[in-house]
């Protein structure tokens, strides 16, 4: 999965053409524990890199999810409304949050690849 990029705030983005799919990492869902609710952005909302994009609640915590790059939201994962547990079950697959049209592909270069992210997580621990 070489097309996946990661942020220091534990978001991932998978790029397909000019569309990026965004979610939180498996490590992040593990830290949060049982996820109870995901607040998704509105389709059409334009996001700035590093700006608040979504929010995720667990029983004991609430976290903001930030946009890995700038762009416009084109689709959200409606399945999470019904079943937030998808994020626990498959954070980097079925538990995706939203898709965005990437405004500036150059911003992807600032993000980590998987091995860099894994090293980053280890250093944090």
């Amino acid at each position: 999965m070489s097309d996946m990029r990661f942020t220091r705030e534990h978001e991932w983005i998978r790029v397909d053409g000019d569309i990026g799919t965004v979610g939180i990492t498996d490590h992040a869902q593990e830290q949060l524990g049982d996820i109870t609710f995901v607040e998704l952005p509105e389709v059409g909302k334009s996001l700035a890199k590093g700006g608040e994009a979504a929010a995720v609640d667990s029983v004991k915590a609430a976290s903001e999810v930030y946009a890995p790059v700038s762009g416009e939201v084109v689709e959200v994962n409606g399945a999470l409304d019904e079943n937030a547990a998808l994020v626990n079950e498959d954070a980097e697959g079925k538990g995706w949050f939203f898709k965005m049209r990437i405004a500036d592909e150059g911003e992807l270069d600032d993000l980590m690849d998987r091995s860099a992210y894994e090293t980053f997580v280890k250093e944090q621990a």
């Binding site: 109870t36 667990s58 029983v59 004991k60 915590a61 609430a62 903001e64």
Partner: peptide, 12 residues
């Protein structure tokens, strides 16, 4: 739904 509340979300 305590994640709405101040003891978790603090200034949010």
């Amino acid at each position: 739904l305590a994640s709405r509340e101040q003891h978790i979300r603090r200034e949010r």
